[in-house]
Design a protein around this nucleic acid. Structure first.
Length: 784
DNA sequence: GCAAGGTC
């Protein structure tokens, strides 16, 4: 029997051919430069096989002639206009090849990726092949990895194509087209009419573009609304003579800091009155800094943006080109776990040749290898991104992206860094303080992965029960710090977590909202931040003025589409049901938007931009007029924890912060400088603050203070460890004592590093409007 | 001149 097998892309076609043919195959060129036909015998199924492929979707959809032109119809008509689906103009050669091959085949076997899009592409292949062989029987090969045994199993036990999954994608395609085109034409024309001659180019609406813009605007609003708040904390230090001279050890107040001067003052008096401090406990333990997880597309883009300072889109392009040259594996993958049978050592061996990290690879070969950590994601189609060959003639972005991928792979194959941690607990005047020291014993993966930092901190010897007179006891103050605007890496992360776009398209959406000038770059040092333009701001503000059930600039609408697709896949709804329902909803929204578009045009940001010269709004170099003062330079790679203004945003940020607790607001709070800068003050000795203190109730007296860290909810904080890979992987932190169970659960946002000097105010605290978070009484943060 | 999703 002659079987025609069709994969989703050239790489898969080639690798599966290698496996099924055992390397014995003939190659034929096709009309497409990317597609090859491979012929071989497959005796296990008594078949003669031709293996070929497509390159993603074969078909594309657009409106018919009467609706395709912008001025051919009212945009509202696009919700019902006929949609024509045909072979994409760039895919004609691929379709012709399929039809020629299908004519001669007795069976068609679909080998597309095993996901919804793959099932849909499979249906497209069937449709095209049946034009020349209408009765050809169709089978579907199901495989979860390109591993010989699985591939043979898939070839010998094929299943049926899943019509429902293909239908779900059909529905998405039609919805995106109708909604995108209708809203884009409507709002472009409305703005052109309102600001004659001032609006150039399209003002597009897209179900992924707008939520992406929404994230940027939302963070911008938070930055703008920020009001710094003063807080107080007690600083305690001891100076000892050592062989190297004098050495000062700083102790951190267990209580962190307080927002009420009077209260801090009373406690401070107690500390001052104490004759000495006593070491209550010395804890010594082994500790680790975990090596990173295997690399996914999203992580590559985030790291590329953050570490290499290359935009997500360019990182992906570089990786794509490296892949085409055979230097790295397939760059679009959600998988962060390696198959147990993966041949690590031969790939490690290929890196030995590198002059820089080659010696490290040699060490791995010499017994330092350790199996990579296993992440939670597997797309069952591709392994994590890894180098497949050594490359030494690269330049520019490709060189840097390759180096990152190679180092990441070697880091994954090494051992965690090992350290030894000492914590000294001290009591003084009824208050607890602590100091932490770290000795890095074995750097291991850190030697090949310079993007992670872990530095030791020496601590002099302290003995349990020992007492000493502190050399410094100060009441210091600091201010909560402004959160930063979003970086591209932050935006990639937010979109990924909220299901806006896919790993392969997120970068394009971000590039698009910048190209459309809804969002502008704002450089701070070497970090690129994203700020809305007046156009982007006006659109979001404007639509927010209209009373939609669901905001156009929040992720909920996209999530609804996603849910509908799942319903179709499960058979609870048909494609027709979903199309009908969804289009009806959007029709209503469209009418509402169009009838109230004057509200969009009249939002202050549009009006003021128009008065001052509307061009300003569209000039890429011109930042939004009401740009807040620049955020302080980034003290660490990540901006301070996001702060939220409403419930939905609160939810995003819970998603954000649960995975990887953001660092505490840094600046003054996190690291009080040893010498007092003008922005910070300290009180030593007799108190010079507000004179007499108000009467405190019993609960406020220092003696009544429980000696454990409590979170905003008032419950004891839980000690947890950062699981997410990143600079802080493995680091202990204190979080809310009642962690959320369901995604929508409320939990308070208390956060504090367990191992760092003065923990600072949780970033969410200082914001005036804190939606639902009020369930954690704000006063609890201050209560002692 | 519109969308988002595959991929080259």
């Amino acid at each position: 029997m002659k079987i025609l097998c069709v994969a989703e892309k050239p790489s898969i076609s080639k690798s599966i051919t290698q496996i099924l043919s055992g390397g014995q195959f003939a190659t034929r060129a096709t009309g497409s430069q990317y597609v090859k036909n491979y012929d071989f015998a497959y005796p296990q199924a008594r078949a003669q096989v031709t293996f070929t492929c497509v390159a993603g979707h074969l078909l594309s959809s657009d409106f018919d002639e009467n609706h395709r032109k912008w001025n051919s119809c009212d945009p509202f008509a696009l919700f019902d206009a006929p949609v024509i689906t045909d072979v994409d103009k760039d895919k004609k050669a691929i379709a012709t090849n399929l039809q020629n091959e299908a004519r001669r085949a007795q069976q068609l076997m679909i080998w597309t990726d095993c996901d919804r899009e793959g099932e849909n592409i499979g249906a497209e292949i069937v449709k095209v092949c049946r034009k020349t062989n209408p009765a050809i029987p169709v089978k579907r090969a199901r495989f979860s990895a390109i591993i010989a045994q699985q591939i043979h199993n898939a070839a010998q036990h094929p299943v049926e194509l899943d019509r429902r999954q293909a239908d779900a994608v059909d529905a998405r395609i039609i919805l995106d087209l109708r909604i995108g085109a209708a809203f884009t034409r409507m709002q472009t024309k409305a703005l052109q009419n309102a600001f004659v001659g001032k609006v150039e180019g399209v003002v597009s609406y897209g179900p992924c573009q707008f939520p992406a813009l929404g994230f940027v605007v939302s963070r911008f609003e938070q930055v703008k609304a920020f009001v710094p708040e003063q807080f107080w904390y007690i600083y305690l230090a001891i100076t000892r003579q050592t062989s190297d001279g004098e050495e000062e050890t700083s102790f951190t107040w267990r209580r962190g800091h307080l927002f009420e001067f009077d209260v801090a003052h009373v406690i401070y008096e107690g500390v001052l009155e104490a004759e000495s401090a006593k070491v209550t406990k010395v804890t010594k333990k082994n500790t680790k800094k975990f090596k990173p997880y295997p690399l996914t597309t999203v992580e590559l883009q985030k790291a590329g943006s953050r570490i290499l300072k290359i935009t997500p889109k360019k990182v992906l392009e570089a990786a794509e080109h490296l892949y085409q040259q055979g230097f790295v594996s397939y760059p679009r993958t959600e998988t962060d776990q390696y198959d147990p049978q993966f041949d690590f050592m031969s790939l490690v061996g290929k890196q030995v040749a590198d002059p820089t990290w080659g010696p490290f690879a040699t060490q791995l070969q010499g017994g330092q290898f350790s199996a990579p950590r296993k992440g939670k994601n597997n797309d069952n189609a591709h392994p994590p991104i890894h180098p497949t060959a050594h490359a030494n003639n690269l330049v520019g972005d490709e060189k840097r992206v390759y180096e990152f991928i190679a180092r990441r792979f070697l880091a994954c194959c090494s051992k965690d860094a090992l350290g030894f941690e000492t914590t000294v607990d001290v009591e003084c005047g009824g208050e607890e303080f602590y100091a932490t020291g770290l000795i890095v014993l074995e750097r291991n993966y850190l030697d090949v992965y310079p993007y992670d930092k872990w530095t030791g901190k020496e601590l002099p010897d302290f003995e349990e029960g020992e007492t000493f007179v502190p050399s410094l006891r100060e009441l210091r103050d600091g201010q909560t710090s402004r959160p930063n605007l979003l970086t591209e890496a932050d935006l990639v992360g937010l979109m990924d977590k909220n299901g806006i776009g896919t790993d392969a398209t997120i970068a394009e959406h971000i590039a698009k909202i910048m190209e459309r000038e809804y969002v502008l770059e704002k450089m701070e040092g070497t970090t690129k931040y994203l700020a809305p333009s007046t156009l982007g701001m006006g659109l979001v503000d404007g639509y927010n003025e209209i009373d939609f059930d669901r905001s156009l600039s929040k992720p909920q609408l996209r999530r609804m589409t996603e849910r509908s697709m799942v319903e179709v896949c499960q058979g609870n709804k048909t494609k027709g049901d979903v199309l009908e329902e969804t289009i009806e909803q959007y029709r209503e929204m469209f009418v509402l938007a169009r009838n109230n578009f004057n509200r969009v045009i009249e939002v202050p940001v549009f009006i003021s931009s128009a008065r001052l010269g509307f061009e300003l709004m569209f000039a890429p170099a011109a930042p939004a007029r009401d740009m807040p003062p620049p955020p302080p330079p980034p003290p660490s790679a990540r901006p301070a924890a996001a702060v939220t203004l409403d419930e939905e945003e609160a939810m995003w940020d819970i998603v954000d912060s649960m995975d990887s607790p953001p660092p505490p607001t840094p600046q003054l709070a996190a690291r009080p400088p040893p010498k007092l800068p003008s922005t910070s003050s300290a009180i030593t000795g007799p108190i010079a603050g507000p004179s007499r203190l108000p009467t405190l109730n019993a609960a406020l007296r220092p003696e009544a203070v429980p000696d454990i860290v409590r979170c905003f909810c008032g419950r004891p904080a839980r000690q947890l460890v950062v699981k997410k890979e990143g600079p802080n992987t493995g680091r202990p932190f204190l979080g809310c004592g009642t962690p959320k169970v369901m995604p929508d659960d409320e939990s308070c946002t208390f956060f504090q590093w367990a191992d760092e000097p003065p923990p600072t105010v949780p970033a969410k605290r200082p914001y005036p409007a804190v939606g639902r978070r009020a369930t954690c009484p704000p006063s609890a943060a201050n209560a002692i």
